[in-house]
Amino acid sequence: MWKTILRRVLIIIPEVFVLSILVFLLAKAMPGDPFTGSINPHTSLAHIHHLMKINGLYDPWYQQYWNWLVHLFHGDLGMSYEYQEPVTRIVGERAINTLWLAVFATVLTYAIGLPVGLYAGRHQNSRGDHAIRMYTYVTYAIPFFVILVMGLWIFGYLLGWFPTTGSIGTNVGSGFPAVISRLQHIILPGILQALFGLVGIVQYLRSEVIDATHSDYVRTARSKGVPVKDVFKHHVFRNSLLPITATAGYSITGLLGGSIYTETVFSYPGMGLLFVSAINYRDYTVITALVLMYGVLSMLGTLLSDIIMAAVDPRIRIE
């Protein structure tokens, strides 16, 4: 098993390298230049050329790539053209905001999704199951941003229960009041995100449970005289939950990556919002840093779920 994991980790290295080249070239290929956003009718062409030159933007691509890579290894992702601040600092701040929201949303997603999915599968075709299915269909049919906007409008503006923008109140200082303020800001977007995100889990788990219920090994267990209640506990639920724990590995991508929809609608200054604004302003250094990070995160997510899978499913442990 350790061998398998080690091999999987080693494969990641060339993957990341290829990813970094792709990301870099992709950023280069984007239309416009980093100064398009900051020019005004009075900016001279010569000044723009000068800016391009001192920022190394006229060098051949491989040279720019190499520079970028060297800096990358020193933890230097360059300066944001838009914010005139080091990218690492901006990303760091935003990542913390995103982490608050995403951890809350993810925990909530699983905390509701798992029991609801198990219930729906266990009591297939019951009233509860019908209601749950109705909910999943409706939620899936409505675009996510519509749900977000409606939630924001009703609970944020009309009822005024929650703040409608930002990640933390101004002048709350630090310590306990800051934590409370943060929580106030993440509750509504977090709940909405969870209510949407749990649909996939519920549907998947429900069908896993139903399949397992009709499996031969469950029939074997029942023919041993194991009461139905215990059959569900020891065989059906257990076997249905294992694949879910593996997919949970992927969710780390979202934990740091954030949700573009949620953060945009709630003007929540996290990674998702940063990404959108970086694209709008052609903030190359930020875009490349974020795309690279998303790429690495999804690789780590896959790696993590592979490892979890190998840990929980004996059939995969074979060398």
Binding site: D216, Y217, A221, H235, R238, N239, L242, V312, R315
Partner: peptide, 9 residues
């Protein structure tokens, strides 16, 4: 079917 009659996990 002894293949499926046992719980794989």
């Amino acid at each position: 079917d002894p293949l499926s009659a046992l719980n794989p996990l």
